[in-house]
Computed example of a mutant assay.
Amino acid sequence: MISQPSCASPTMDGPKLKEVSVKLPKNFDRPDEPWTHYFTIDLLWTTLGYTLFHPFITWVICLCLRAQYTPYGAPEMRIAVAWAMAMSMIGIFNIFSERIAFGRPREVDLAEEVIVITGGVDGLGGLLAETYGMRNANVAVLDTKKVSDDEAEEKGVLYYECDVSDPKQVEAAVAEIVEDLGPPTILINNAGIVQAKPILDSTAEEVEQTFRTNTFSHFTTLRTFLPHMIQERRGTIVTVASVLGHVGAANLASYAASKAALIALHQSLRSELAQNPDADEIKTILVTPGQMGTEMFAGLKTPSNFLAPVVTPAEIAKDILRLIEKGESGEVAVPLYSKYIQILNVLPVGVQALVRRWSGLDTAVARSGMMKGAPKNK
């Protein structure tokens, strides 16, 4: 921690500049990784999406061939034109598909929005809160962890000490937020905990605690915040679930089950909002990330860094921010496998068993040492 000294001289008149605490990145704490560590299927897929799979680029290739006087009947020209037409049709289909599914985007002006983030002191929620705080947005965080007034002022965020699993605390916090900032219009349901234990070793109290924090809290916040959005006739609701909600995992039964419930809750919420004429401008975003590089899953390793890289909160936050600020509904699923993991459930059961065995999905928690210690928060 270093302090930036004031540039004003003690003998000069006028107020001194505010001293700002700066925490420099600790690059030296990170081990040096070979370049192959950063070469993943996600990077490859993104690169292809901006090149060979991009309609504009594919038509540019056709123009380049014509610039070389390639005849229209030449095999390479026919292949290039056919590929460009296929990419264009897929792109147009995706545009219409998203419009049918999610409707038209709403206008978003951060100065007019009130953003509420549960579990927003650290991790993914903390990053989102600090990002919006730096942009002078109206941000309120609900979390059980305390934050000093000086830190809150420095980040530009209002923190409310609140256990989101307690409906009374949430209702009291919402009343304060409405008085301090105004009616909430963006809700990011991010709070969550994980208890890594076999089913037979889990107590009823531990399972209930996981569901109260990970699942029941979403019902509470929706019942409390959604009426304000309907009254304002605009809003965005972000549901942070997990890829484990699609596949489950040994020793994470309560966590996976609570996240699976969120995926179903999100679909039900979308259906109910579609039937409410006053909710036409209320957008929904489902987040199903793979393994994040946070304290929550510290020590857990994926079987293949190429196929299943560990994602940073910044990568997920970037996509969430993009959808929120474009006023769109949608889904955030990173890395790439989390977007298509549902295909696993329609494969023959023997293939599913082989994939789970090869991936180490059901042995990763036991190897990581996560089952030692207290529950971890996001």
Rank of each mutant, 00 (worst) to 15 (best):
G245D: 11
H246L: 11
H246S: 13
V247S: 03
A249L: 04
A249M: 14
A250N: 12
N251C: 12
N251I: 07
L252H: 00
L252Q: 06
A253G: 15
S254M: 11
A256L: 08
A257C: 13
S258N: 07
S258F: 11
K259H: 10
A260S: 14
A260H: 06
A260L: 06
A260D: 05
A261L: 09
A261H: 06
A261Q: 06
L262F: 05
L262R: 06
L262S: 04
L262T: 05
L262N: 03
I263P: 01
I263V: 14
L265Q: 12
Q267N: 14
S268K: 03
L269I: 03
R270G: 02
R270H: 03
S271D: 10
S271I: 08
E272K: 07
L273M: 05
A274P: 00
A274Q: 12
A274D: 12
Q275R: 15
Q275N: 11
Q275V: 09
N276K: 06
N276F: 04
P277L: 04
D278N: 12
D278P: 00
D278W: 04
D278S: 11
D278F: 10
D278A: 13
A279Q: 04
A279T: 08
D280Y: 09
E281C: 13
K283L: 09
T284R: 04
T284W: 13
I285E: 09
L286N: 02
L286F: 07
V287R: 02
V287Q: 05
T288W: 13
T288I: 15
P289M: 12
G290A: 12
G290I: 12
G290K: 08
G290H: 12
Q291F: 15
M292G: 03
G293I: 07
G293R: 08
T294V: 12
E295G: 15
M296H: 10
M296P: 03
F297W: 13
F297A: 14
A298P: 00
G299I: 07
G299F: 12
G299E: 05
L300A: 10
L300D: 02
L300W: 03
K301I: 12
T302N: 14
T302D: 05
P303F: 15
P303G: 01
P303E: 07
F306G: 02
F306Y: 14
L307F: 15
A308E: 08
A308S: 11
A308R: 07
V310S: 06
V310F: 08
